[in-house]
Computed example of a mutant assay.
Amino acid sequence: MPRSLPPALAGPFWIVCSSLLFAAGWTFIKLAGADIHPFAVVFWRCLIGALLLSPFVLSGHVKMPLGRMGGHIGRATSGIIAMFCTFYALANAPIATVQAITFAAPVFATVGAVLFLGEKVRMRRVAALGIGFAGVMVVLQPWSQPLTIGVSVAVIAALAMAVTTIAIKKLVGFDRPMTVVAWSFVLPILPSLFAASFVWTWPQPRTWLYLLGIGIFTLAGQSAMVRAFSLAEASAIMPYDFVRFGFILAIGVTLFGEALSPAVLIGGGIILASAIYLAYREAQLARTTGPASAKPLI
């Protein structure tokens, strides 16, 4: 990042970088999933990412304390479910459709915060949640077409991402963001290897390049996202995350020959708009009442 970049642009800069990196990572995931089972792709993603992180851990630049292992294990559990489902969905559904559905994760996370963290809501937030779910329905269109296994699993992935979001919110209050990232790569290695062992095949030579790309781009994408959220409020940078949707749409059309679906475009926009509004209301509440307040969000 240029040193002269104003602070107000630093957060958007890093979230756009993250969007581009994740779009590249998803491309390699879809390519690798055409050769080996998605569960094996998850294992290689975690192992390669952990190996890439190891020099920073060994040098002390990334800390991995053991004091909050319970929280990290919980976050890793929901994270590996999200990875299994996302990687499977990418191998069995259009990449743009999967991206649009997973945009609903912040909406589901808000519901989870109400159900499991005791947060209270009023009508504006309820309306935003309703709009978000409407966007999901526009993408899925259950009234006109049967749900495929790939699309159904993408919905489960969004739910698991929501649980992961709640877990991360709790963890980053105690641990450094890169600590959370590091454990998210290390802890799923053995469980993902166990799951992959039932469907194991060795990658073809070209697939090794895809797997390396997955490790590099998902690690870099997470690091850029962490940097973005450390520099700006979520409400300020979430609108720029729609750039990722544009990248994914272009990749789906140009690389995989997928049709550009109006329902995915419209539904994805509705879902993201709902998520942006929810982030805005959360930031507004934090500024006026403080993060520990139990005051309802309106």
Rank of each mutant, 00 (worst) to 15 (best):
P2L: 07
R3L: 14
L5H: 13
P6C: 05
G11V: 05
G11R: 06
F13A: 14
V16T: 10
C17I: 07
S19L: 09
L20I: 13
A23R: 03
A23D: 05
G25R: 02
W26P: 00
T27S: 13
F28I: 05
F28E: 03
A32G: 06
G33D: 05
D35P: 01
I36R: 03
H37R: 06
F39R: 01
C46H: 05
C46F: 11
I48H: 02
I48D: 02
G49W: 04
A50D: 08
A50T: 12
L51C: 15
L51S: 11
L52S: 02
L52G: 04
V57N: 07
K63R: 15
M64S: 06
L66E: 09
L66R: 15
G67E: 14
R68V: 13
G70P: 11
G70H: 11
H72R: 04
I73D: 10
R75E: 12
T77P: 07
T77D: 08
F84Y: 10
C85N: 05
T86S: 15
T86V: 14
F87D: 03
I95M: 10
T97S: 14
T97P: 03
T97F: 06
A100N: 09
I101S: 02
T102D: 08
A104L: 10
F108V: 06
A109M: 10
V111R: 03
V121G: 07
R124C: 07
R125D: 03
V126P: 14
A127R: 12
A128E: 03
I131Q: 12
F133I: 13
F133L: 15
A134P: 00
G135F: 01
L140G: 06
Q141T: 11
Q141H: 10
P142R: 12
W143Q: 14
S144W: 06
Q145F: 07
Q145C: 08
I149Y: 00
V153P: 04
A154Q: 00
A154F: 02
L159G: 07
L159S: 05
A160N: 00
A160K: 00
T165I: 10
A167N: 09
L171M: 14
L171V: 05
F174C: 05
F174A: 08
R176E: 12
R176L: 09
A182V: 10
S184H: 08
V186P: 11
L190S: 13
L190Y: 06
L190C: 11
L193D: 08
V199C: 13
W200L: 13
P203Q: 09
Q204S: 15
Y210S: 09
I216S: 13
F217W: 07
G221F: 04
A224N: 01
V226I: 15
V226G: 02
S235R: 03
Y240W: 12
D241R: 09
F242A: 10
F247L: 15
I248C: 07
I251W: 08
G252T: 01
T254P: 00
T254R: 02
F256P: 06
G257C: 09
G257V: 05
A263P: 09
V264R: 04
I266C: 06
G267I: 02
I270D: 02
A273M: 15
S274E: 02
A275T: 09
I276C: 13
Y277R: 14
R287L: 15
L297D: 07
